[in-house]
Simulated assay, not measured.
Amino acid sequence: MPDSHPNPSELLETVLEPLLEDFQYWFTRAQTLLQSERITLLSLEEQEKLLERVKKSQQEVSTAQLLFKTLGKQAGIDTNVLVPWHQLVAECWQVSRRWRAYKKDKG
């Protein structure tokens, strides 16, 4: 019976590559929202700081994707790097959810 466990390289390609793509997707959506609308639930300073954090994280993810591809999909990313990205995505989801609810109530 063949070994059903993927080798580390396959695991990285199967899990890490789509994860990085997901981060880029959600950061792009957050950036679009934060640049296109004035989120009155946040102070202007809070909105600007959140946008800057999103842009910085997008650059970090882009760098990680480039390194991953350049190294033949053989390099992983420490969870200490992934966790803040995940937390930022969750924060952006919350802002977006609250903003949609606010606009719906006002609409």
Results as ranks from 00 to 15, higher is better:
Leu71Pro: 02
Ser9Ile: 09
Leu41Gln: 08
Lys55Asn: 09
Val61Phe: 11
Leu67Val: 04
Leu66His: 14
Gln24Trp: 10
Gly76Ala: 04
Asn7Trp: 13
Glu10Lys: 07
Glu46Gly: 07
Ile39Glu: 04
Pro8Asn: 11
Glu13Arg: 15
Thr32Met: 05
Val15His: 11
Leu12Lys: 13
Leu41Asp: 12
Trp26Gly: 01
Glu21Cys: 04
Gln58Ile: 00
Asn7Gly: 04
Leu16Thr: 02
Leu33Gly: 00
Leu71Phe: 12
Pro18Cys: 07
Gly76Ile: 10
Ala75Tyr: 06
Thr79Lys: 11
Pro2Trp: 06
Gly76Lys: 07
Gly72Lys: 09
Thr14Glu: 11
Phe68Lys: 10
Leu33Ser: 03
Gln47Trp: 06
Leu20Val: 04
Glu17Thr: 09
Leu51Asp: 06
Pro6Gly: 01
Gln47Thr: 00
Asp22Cys: 08
Ala75Asp: 03
Leu50Cys: 08
Asp22Met: 10
Glu21Arg: 06
Leu51Thr: 00
Thr70Phe: 12
Ser43Ile: 02
Ser43Met: 05
Pro6Ala: 01
Leu20Gln: 09
Asp22Pro: 00
Leu12Gly: 04
Leu33Glu: 02
Glu10Ser: 04
Leu51Phe: 04
Glu60Leu: 15
Gln74Cys: 09
Arg29Gln: 14
Gln31Trp: 01
Glu37Phe: 10
Leu71Gly: 08
Arg38Gln: 14
Ala75Leu: 12
Glu13Asp: 04
Gln59Gly: 12
Lys49Trp: 07
Glu60Arg: 15
Leu66Glu: 13
Leu34Pro: 01
Gln58Gly: 15
Ser36Ile: 00
Leu20Asn: 11
Arg29Phe: 05
Gln47Leu: 03
Leu33Gln: 13
Leu67Lys: 13
Leu44Pro: 03
Val15Gln: 08
Thr40Gly: 05
Thr70Leu: 09
Thr40Trp: 07
Thr40His: 08
Ser43Asn: 07
Glu45Met: 08
Ser57Lys: 10
Gln74Gly: 05
His5Thr: 10
Arg29Leu: 11
Lys55Gln: 15
Ala64Thr: 02
Arg38Trp: 13
Leu50Ser: 09
Tyr25Ser: 15
Leu66Ile: 03
Lys49Asp: 06
Glu46Met: 13
Leu50Thr: 03
Thr79Asn: 03
Gln31Lys: 15
Lys56His: 09
Glu48Trp: 03
Leu42Asp: 02
Ser9Trp: 07
Thr63Met: 12
Ser62Trp: 06
Trp26Asp: 06
Glu37Gln: 10
Gln65Phe: 03
Pro8Lys: 15
Phe68Trp: 02
Gln65Asn: 10
Leu33Ala: 04
Leu20Ser: 09
Leu42Trp: 13
Leu16Cys: 08
Ala30Lys: 11
Ser57Gly: 07
Leu20Ile: 06
Leu51Lys: 01
Ser57Phe: 10
Gln31Asn: 10
Ala64Val: 01
Thr28Ala: 14
Arg53Ser: 13
Ser36Thr: 00
Arg38Ile: 14
Arg53Gly: 00
Gly76Arg: 10
Glu37Lys: 00
Thr14Tyr: 02
Lys56Pro: 01
Pro18Ile: 01
Glu48Asn: 12
Gln58Asn: 14
Ser9Met: 04
Thr28Gly: 07
Leu71His: 14
Leu67Phe: 08
Ala75Gly: 07
Leu44Ile: 08
Leu51Pro: 01
Ser62Arg: 07
Leu51Val: 02
Val54Cys: 03
Pro8Ala: 10
Ser43Ala: 09
Asp3Asn: 13
Leu41Ser: 07
Leu67Ala: 09
Asp78Ile: 07
